[in-house]
Write a protein that binds this DNA or RNA. Structure first.
Lengths: 155, 155
DNA sequence: ACGAGACAGTTGCATTTGGAAGGAGTGCGA
DNA sequence: TCGCACTCCTTCCAAATGCAACTGTCTCGT
């Protein structure tokens, strides 16, 4: 075994993997129980709402929420059918499309927001001091950067 | 919006979400490129190898790798077909089954291990000091505990 | 102005997924 | 010992996923 990653790092990686899965699992469970949108949909709508004009190019959106391109296409298909989002052609690039949140999309996201926040508060905010939260960000951003640059992945 | 989680905690959560997705994505990409088993399979085999006697009850295994019960059943179906794992009835509980790694399973995991370790080293170990890794574990364990206890999820 | 190559987004296909329902076995209280 | 609630694992079904192939558009060097 030529490359050995330290025990501490392995443990950290593993604990992270598990913690995150449980957190997401719990959020999804709570959303489903309350009959709200799924976590994936929530992420899409929130990402759009956070963006300038409530819209984003398909590929930008896919990058941000880490969906495959084809996955996003079909997700937006569904959301469009539900009336949460509409597609809008890009004026300056005829290949491109924007996904745009509709008022209805904003509404359902807002309804789900309460549950997500409550759950996140219980399982995340209480486990982490404010300093720890602040310290975590640059570390995780460094991980992201390394992962992205390690080898380009065609989406 | 009654419950507001702090900006810092939100950023931390988001950065974690993204970092992890990228890391897993990259590991999966590397494994596929090298024509090795998938990350999920790797996790199953490793978890089994780490266990007493190389075996684990189906539901224990499902809990550790955070698979749904039905998902695990089918995963073990596939692995059994490939000869990486066998099922073995539990002697003291006739409902229960063990999944047991075979030598062939150990071999393929071992082959994949090099790639996983190398990738993990590049994107994880380098982004995190040893102290940071050590500090992360209890925090993440606290998250896991909160998420598990927040409300029991039937798998 | 042209062609090669990169890029945006979609679609086809085979595979995988999650949840709810089902069959079998266990354990505990009356 | 009977009954009932619970657990273990599997199966069924509809829905979602990823990859690879494809169309149409842009870019850049010549």
């Amino acid at each position: 075994m030529p490359h050995i990653i330290s025990r501490n790092h392995q443990n950290a990686w593993r604990s992270l993997l598990i913690a995150q899965s449980w957190a997401i699992r719990q959020i999804e469970f709570q959303l489903r129980k309350a009959n709200e949108i799924s976590f994936d949909v929530y992420e899409v709508l929130q990402t759009l709402e956070d963006s300038e004009g409530g819209k984003l190019r398909m590929s930008d959106l896919a990058d941000r929420i880490l969906f495959s391109r084809s996955g996003l296409t079909r997700m937006i298909d569904r959301l469009e059918e539900l009336g949460y989002v509409v597609r809008e052609p890009s004026p300056d690039d005829r290949r491109g499309w924007y996904a745009v949140v509709t008022p209805k999309g904003k509404e359902v996201r807002h309804r789900a927001c309460d549950i997500v926040q409550t759950t996140l508060q219980a399982i995340w905010e209480r486990s982490l001091s404010d300093e720890e939260a602040v310290a975590l960000v640059p570390v995780m951003e460094s991980v992201t950067k390394s992962a992205r640059n390690y080898e380009p992945i065609r989406g």
